[in-house]
Structures are given as structure tokens and as C-alpha cells.
Amino acid sequence: MEKIKTPALSEYLIRLADDRLILGHRLSEWCGHAPILEEDIALTNIALDCIGQANFLYSTAAESEGNNRTADEIVYFREALEYRNLLLVEQPNIDFASTIVRQLLYDTYGILLYEQLQQSTFKPLAGIAQKAVKELRYHFRHSSQWLLRLGDGTVESHLRTQNAVDKLWKYTDEMFISDAVEVELAAKGIAVKSEALKERWFTIMRDLISSATLTVPVQGSFIRKGGREGKHSEHLGHLLSEMQIVARSYPDIVW
């Protein structure tokens, strides 16, 4: 197999991995707190899928860098500034409705992205994508069904869900920005130009939101972005401090 070693490749893989890890960590915060036992298990299952995908992506990134960094080192010993995830996935859980809406906004994007990444010319990534797509389709089934129930449920669930859609919508444009890293890798057939996914994503989201008797927000002129350059919201620092505390307090600990 052809060896492709570019900083862009590692950067791209880390982005994908950070999206999965941070979203997975957010979901894991529901463990023991979900509204009903079955849902607790569902959310933590999805969290494990996300973190599992992240693990593969980090290992592949480390391999492509040709150094000995492990997934644990990448995860536990980077600062918020070095994280490359979308701002959307680091937004706090707030309530069940916000969690579901955040998940659905990403799941829809994730399916479209990983469907195409299955054809990546970088074989390890294509392999990861094949597994990820199956998992993402289940995640989408879970989050889209909940959106319909919550939106078309009680007065309170409707209000909370609409509120979540309105609050999170401004983070969605960031998913579709194709910067220099993406363009360079897309030219080699390794990456997907995410700007090309926007139209389908919007159509799916618009139909789902309408079916749930909710209103599609109007995108404001101010787009929240910066995650890919390490410019994060205040929430990521808090998340990382909790996630990293054990590994940093006891370096090299084994469990």
C-alpha cells in the first residue's frame, strides 16, 4: 500500500476523531442520569460507539505521523487549544431535548460524511468509515425517532426541543466549511469536501424538523466557528479537565 504521510492527513484524522470523542464523552455524562434505565443504556451504548471510532482514528493518525504517540497520549495530554472538534459537539447536555438535537444534527452529518469516506483512497480511513456508517445509521434512527416524539409530544417537550434547535442551529454551518486541509486531501481522494454535504443535510434536517411539528430556524449572519483551529467555547475546557484529571494526576497509570 502506498504510504501517505502528510501533516494534513494527521490533522484531518484528528479532527474526525475529536468530533467523535467529545460527542461520545458528552453522551457518557448521561450514564446513571438518563430519564429511564433503557435510555441510559442506549445513550451509553452510543457513547461507546463514538469513543470506539475515535480510538481507531487516533491510532491511524499516530501511525500516519510515523511517531509513537498512542491514542491515550493524544487524548489526555492535549490542551483545549489543540483540540480540533466542531463547536457543536462540545455544547453541554443541558436537558434530554438538547442532547437529542445535538446528536441528530451530528448524526445526519456523520452519515453523509462517512458514507463518502468509505471510498477514501486512504484505505485505513475507508475501513474505519465502513464500520462507522453502520453505527451512525443506528444512532440516527435513535435520535431522529426521539426528535419526532419530543417535538410532537407534550407542550413542555415541544418547547424544550424547539429551544434546543434554535440554540444549536448556529453551530451547524461550521460542519460545512472546507478549509485548506480538506481541499488538499480531497484532491487526493482521501477526504470529503464537507461543503458538498450541506444541501442534503439541510433537506433531511428540514423535513425531520417539520415532521416533528417544529420550526426550522433561520440561519443568522454570524456563524459560530473556530473549532478546527482550536478556538473553542468555554465548555470544552471544563469537559477536558474532567476527562483528563486521572491520566494527568497519575501519568503512566495502567487500568
Binding site: 429511564i36 442506549a42 425517532q145
Partner: peptide
Amino acid sequence: SIRGADAENALQNARDVFAR
């Protein structure tokens, strides 16, 4: 056995509890 709000929800819960 599991709890479920409706058939689809119950099917998903069954999958997550017993089949994963």
C-alpha cells in the same frame, strides 16, 4: 422484558439492552 413508549422505541430499547 423492557419498557418502551411505543413499538419502535421498545424495539430500540430491546436492541440496546439485549442484542448489542
